[in-house]
Amino acid sequence: MSEKLEFDKIELGYELPSQSKHITQEKIDKNAEASLDFNPIHIDPEWCKKINLLGKGTTIAHGMMTLSFMGKIVTDWAYPGGGFLKSLEGKFLYPVRPGDDITNYAQVIEKHPRSDRTSFVVLELWCENQDGVKVGVGEAAVTIPE
């Protein structure tokens, strides 16, 4: 059994362990089937080449796949500790393409104490590709009921 998160013990500035993902066309296709988002910008390399999508002519990964990675780093910490994901927000700054290695980061930046077991923390989220380019930024809020 994992140790329960305690609101008072969570420190501002605490960084969650980073998580990395290698992106392939196969994984993007699998995500399309899973998410029911079959936009050709994700799954049709020939069409993307034909229209020179975003200047490079390759497919791009789903933004929501990036957001799910940003959420996973948080739920991997919060769920075993008894927490709940309250919100998740992401902005996608740069395309994620097949072959990219994406690393996700999260850091506690706010604490919101409440007396009715609804205290929550806010985490800053960001992810970078193999060149250190930020591909996504965002925030998540996690309710810590203890």
Partner: peptide, 28 residues
């Protein structure tokens, strides 16, 4: 995500070929 894509009509702009996702906010 799959819930919304299943729910929306097939000619909804969320399914427009070439549409790009700039960012989203979800409250649970």
């Amino acid at each position: 995500v799959p819930i919304v894509f299943a729910s929306l009509p097939p000619d909804h702009w969320a399914k427009m070929p070439g549409a790009i996702n700039p960012g989203q906010r979800l409250e649970f």
